[in-house]
Amino acid sequence: MELGLHGKTALVFGAAGGLGSAIARALALEGVNLVLADVNEASLSDKAAEFKAVGVAVMPLVWNLTDLGSIGDRFQLIEDRFGPVDILVNNTGGPPPTTAGGQPVERWHEYFQTMVLSVIAVTDRALPNMRARKWGRIITSTSSGVVAPIPNLGISNTLRMALVGWSKTLAREVGYDGVTANIVLPGRIATPRISFIDEQKAKREGRPVDEVVKESLESIPIGRYGRPEEYGAVVAFLSSIHAAYVTGSVIRVDGGLIPSI
């Protein structure tokens, strides 16, 4: 299927990580100009070289989302090279495993800024050009924990839920202007983040990691962890001309893991 994205410009956050790089690669294969944003400069350079080999224009940007004051400057760099951003992929790193109770207020403030406020501020900067041109895609990657809260991921469950409410509200505000806003939920996708969570659970419960992974696999109807490229493909479709009537939605990519309807 031709997705109609050739020559569009996408800004992908967390582009040096597992899900972000998979999303970027899926978009690269569709001929999208890529702006890769991440805090990891070394990994970012590696990914930029990888995607340039696909034959698309790539712009790596070291971008720390805790610095809200840098948003305007970063967008100016992007627009000077590619013009306005057509596709914005909000994909932030997750906090460490924590309980919901007993966390210092300062920790809540820290992750609210990096996981929620930064996403809102970046989107607000991208939206005016999208609305003016009557075309845009806002795709926010969160977690299956917003539907079925994951034990010991208290901060993640709480803050990512805020993004769901924000995205749904935004979708109603910008839909008439040809801009869509959707949430994508990864289930157990085989990334370093999932490996880390499995290892932490095993350590916390005093069990072998293999036992934790086996238990996790048994909870997934498809019987395996998802492949990052499967997640990237869903995001690429939501970015496409064919997804113009999909907005305000929460799309699960979880192999059937979430048990609720």
Rank of each mutant, 00 (worst) to 15 (best):
Q103P: 07
V105G: 10
V105Y: 10
R107P: 02
H109F: 11
H109E: 15
E110V: 07
E110P: 02
Q113C: 09
T114Q: 04
T114I: 12
M115E: 05
L117C: 08
L117D: 10
V122H: 05
T123R: 01
T123L: 02
T123W: 01
R125E: 03
R125A: 14
R125K: 14
R125P: 03
A126L: 05
A126M: 08
L127G: 00
N129E: 15
M130I: 08
R131P: 03
R131S: 12
A132S: 15
K134V: 09
K134F: 12
K134Y: 12
W135A: 07
W135S: 03
G136L: 00
R137S: 03
I139V: 15
T140V: 11
S141W: 00
S141F: 06
S141C: 14
T142L: 15
G145E: 02
V146H: 02
V147H: 07
V147S: 00
I150E: 09
I150V: 12
P151M: 08
P151H: 07
N152K: 10
L153E: 12
I155N: 00
S156V: 12
N157L: 05
N157E: 09
T158E: 04
L159E: 08
R160Y: 08
R160S: 04
R160H: 07
M161C: 15
M161V: 15
M161L: 14
A162I: 11
A162D: 07
K168R: 14
T169I: 11
L170A: 06
L170N: 03
R172K: 14
R172Q: 14
E173C: 02
G175L: 07
Y176L: 15
Y176G: 15
Y176P: 14
Y176C: 13
Y176D: 15
D177T: 13
G178N: 05
T180W: 03
A181K: 09
I183K: 00
V184L: 07
L185N: 14
P186T: 04
R188Y: 05
R188P: 04
A190T: 08
T191N: 01
P192I: 08
R193D: 10
S195R: 13
I197S: 00
D198Y: 03
K201Q: 14
A202I: 00
R204V: 01
R204Q: 14
R204H: 12
E205K: 09
P208W: 05
D210M: 06
E211M: 08
E211K: 07
E211T: 05
V212F: 02
K214N: 12
S216G: 11
S216D: 07
S216I: 07
I220Q: 01
I220G: 02
I222Y: 08
R227L: 12
R227Y: 09
R227M: 14
E230C: 06
Y231W: 10
A233V: 09
A233E: 13
V234P: 04
A236Q: 03
A236R: 00
L238N: 01
L238G: 00
S239L: 06
S240A: 05
I241N: 11
H242Y: 15
H242G: 05
A244K: 08
A244D: 09
Y245N: 11
V246Y: 02
S249D: 14
S249K: 06
S249P: 03
V250P: 01
V250D: 09
V250K: 05
I251K: 10
